[in-house]
Design a binder for these strands. Structure first.
Length: 347
DNA sequence: GTTTGACCTGG
DNA sequence: CAGGTCAAA
């Protein structure tokens, strides 16, 4: 019955031109986002954009166009859209509340929404060219690693996802995040044939409730239960509107934002850098995990081979090295090298 | 200001 | 051990 009702509504879909500068696989499945799933026999990606829209994306055979379909576009899910950080000189997308009469549910609105999430406003060819000129090793890798993009992601989802990521494996990280969404998120789309019911990521205020920590413990979150709850509570205690904090973090200089984030329990240098890079538009942030550490050891800083593990000092050194080599978007260059190092993307 | 272990849980 | 963090040397 429900299917019939949906079918009567106009389908929201269209194509987005990418100039060959986007690989969905390398972008959605390279460890920056944890909730994108491959469906329809491996052709379509389904995920949530802006924490409100369930979107299906398909890379076209020409590699230069993306087909999108908003699966829950007929629902009234636009009322609580977050306001994303404004990028200087770039017009921020309007939310439905401030769309001054313009219909938010038209094709232009959605293609902009998705383009914004995928950061398609950034010319990736120029960046790759620049990085390749300043580093032969990058150049050699980049020719087989085109279209890696740093997504413009939701703050709360990035924060809590990467709190879950520490000292943990990808499989369990994804399961934990999915559990968070199912238990504390809102229903965005029901009965997807392969994925079931799709939820939003929880509000920070919801995760700040006292019952959360014991509940998460029971769900197998271990010591991260306290990290999640206490971080949420810390934010809510200080800010009436948690989203406001993320805007402030995006406005302040990278080093200050990083320092502020690290006051949260479960957020150290690496997690703070992930949030800064992926959710706060601080593209000079270089998250150094064990993968990047090994890349740095073998490719750039051989004297670090004597180090058994990352120290605060070597962490800083690697980040600074990347910034000096690749410039203000060093975090993006790191993302490309990181992606190339992932097992699933090796030739 | 550095460096070392323990740490929930599951494959 | 796994895409670190925390607290105690």
């Amino acid at each position: 019955m429900r299917q019939t009702v949906k079918a009567l509504k106009p389908m929201i879909e269209g194509f987005i031109e990418t100039n060959g500068e986007l690989s969905l696989k390398r972008t959605l499945k390279s460890g920056q986002a944890f909730r994108w799933r491959l469906t329809n026999d491996g052709t379509d990606w389904v995920g949530v954009v802006r924490n409100t829209h369930v979107v299906q994306l398909t890379q076209q055979p020409d590699g230069k166009h993306i087909h999108y379909r908003v699966l829950n576009g007929h629902e009234d899910n636009d009322h609580n859209q977050e306001i994303k950080p404004t990028v200087k000189g770039r017009k921020r997308l309007k939310t439905s509340d401030e769309s001054d009469g313009e219909n938010p549910k038209d094709q232009y609105f959605y293609s902009q929404l998705i383009s914004d999430y995928l950061r398609l406003d950034v010319n990736l060819t120029d960046l790759y060219d620049k990085w390749s000129k300043s580093d032969d090793k990058f150049a050699a890798i980049a020719v087989n690693m085109s279209g890696v993009r740093v997504l413009r992601q939701n703050f709360a989802e990035t924060l809590f996802s990467f709190i879950c990521s520490s000292n943990n494996n990808i499989n369990r990280i994804e399961k934990m995040i999915e559990t968070l969404c199912q238990k504390y998120g809102k229903v965005l789309y029901e009965s997807h044939p392969e994925l079931g019911t799709i939820h939003s990521f929880p509000e920070i205020t919801r995760l700040a409730e006292e019952s959360v920590e014991p509940e998460l413990k029971k769900l197998g979150f271990g010591y991260r239960s306290a990290f999640i709850h206490r971080s949420a509570k810390t934010i809510c205690d200080e800010y009436k509107c948690p989203e406001k904090w993320s805007q402030e973090l995006a406005q302040m200089p990278y080093s200050e934002a990083r320092q502020a984030l690290q006051r949260l329990p479960g957020v150290g240098p690496k997690v703070a850098d992930c949030i800064a890079l992926m959710a706060l538009n601080h593209l000079e942030s270089v998250p150094v995990d064990v993968h990047v550490f090994k890349i740095a050891q073998h490719m750039y800083l051989p004297h670090l081979k004597k180090n058994k593990s990352l120290t605060h000092k070597s962490y800083q050194e690697i980040g600074d090295f990347f910034r000096s080599k690749f410039g203000p978007n060093a975090g993006w260059a790191q993302a490309v090298l990181f992606c190339a190092d992932l097992k699933q993307f090796k030739q």
